[in-house]
Computed example of a mutant assay.
Amino acid sequence: MSTLLAMLDAFDDLPQVRDLRERSYQALGDTVVDVGCGGGRAVGELVARGVRAIGIDLDPAMIEIAIERWPTSEFHVADATALPLDDGSVTGYRADKVLHVLAEPERAVIEARRVLAGNGRAVLLGQDWDTFVIDSDDPELTRALVHARADGMPNPRVARRYRNLLLDNGFTDVTVEVHTIVRTDATSLPMLANIGGAGAWLDDQVARARDDRLFVAIPIFLASGIRAD
């Protein structure tokens, strides 16, 4: 299992994240495409609810894992900006933790509108990579590390643009919610290592986890809108 998938699995197992995932499934209808599906958990959960769910990911290795985990579900290797779906063929579109890796996220939103039927719902979820909150003995270094990690991505702050992306690309009844995920145990250490790397800063976080003093808060943005005819 890749380090990325292991981190995603640990994050998706959190009770707060499970609740948020459930909320993201609301009003998506009976045919849903999950873009950036990763290991396929959302697809499997939607299928278990009687929905026809289609998982899309650009990474063939992720799709292989998704098929292995959810063998009765449908998965395809494809780009978020060129989905292998007909116009108006789905009632729901879901993209979770994916737009920040796209150079032109608006193209994915345009593609979402194309594949959605009239009155279909699009749901966008993700974190703003500049707004991770991490308690530390060195707040200035922590701020620098968080921002450096964010700046290594194509669109680290796209989540704060979700509402405008939907409004500007043919969606109405747009809403936005913010759900803060709080982590206080060692399960967050791989994520913190990904941000700070080995050294004194990470050693401090390891000690905090050992002493039950670790604190990480991650605001997750959930935006949704209806395809305007």
Rank of each mutant, 00 (worst) to 15 (best):
E22F: 00
E22S: 09
R23K: 10
S24N: 05
S24F: 07
S24Q: 01
Q26N: 10
Q26S: 11
G29L: 02
D30Q: 15
D30I: 12
T31I: 02
V32K: 00
C37A: 05
C37Q: 03
G39N: 14
G39Y: 12
A42G: 14
G44C: 06
L46M: 08
A48T: 02
A48M: 02
I56C: 07
I56K: 02
D57P: 01
A61Y: 13
A61L: 14
I63C: 06
E68Q: 15
E68T: 13
R69G: 10
P71G: 11
P71C: 12
T72K: 08
S73P: 05
S73A: 15
H76W: 14
A78I: 10
A80K: 01
T81N: 10
A82E: 15
A82I: 11
L83N: 09
P84Q: 09
L85D: 08
D86V: 00
S89W: 05
V90R: 03
T91E: 13
Y93N: 05
Y93C: 05
R94G: 01
K97G: 02
V98F: 07
V98K: 06
V101L: 13
V101D: 12
A103N: 15
A103Q: 15
V109K: 11
V109E: 08
V109C: 01
E111Y: 00
E111V: 03
R114G: 02
L116D: 02
R121A: 04
A122N: 08
A122E: 06
A122V: 10
V123P: 03
L124V: 03
L125C: 06
G126H: 09
Q127F: 10
D128E: 11
D128I: 11
D128H: 13
F132A: 11
V133L: 00
D135T: 12
S136E: 04
L141M: 12
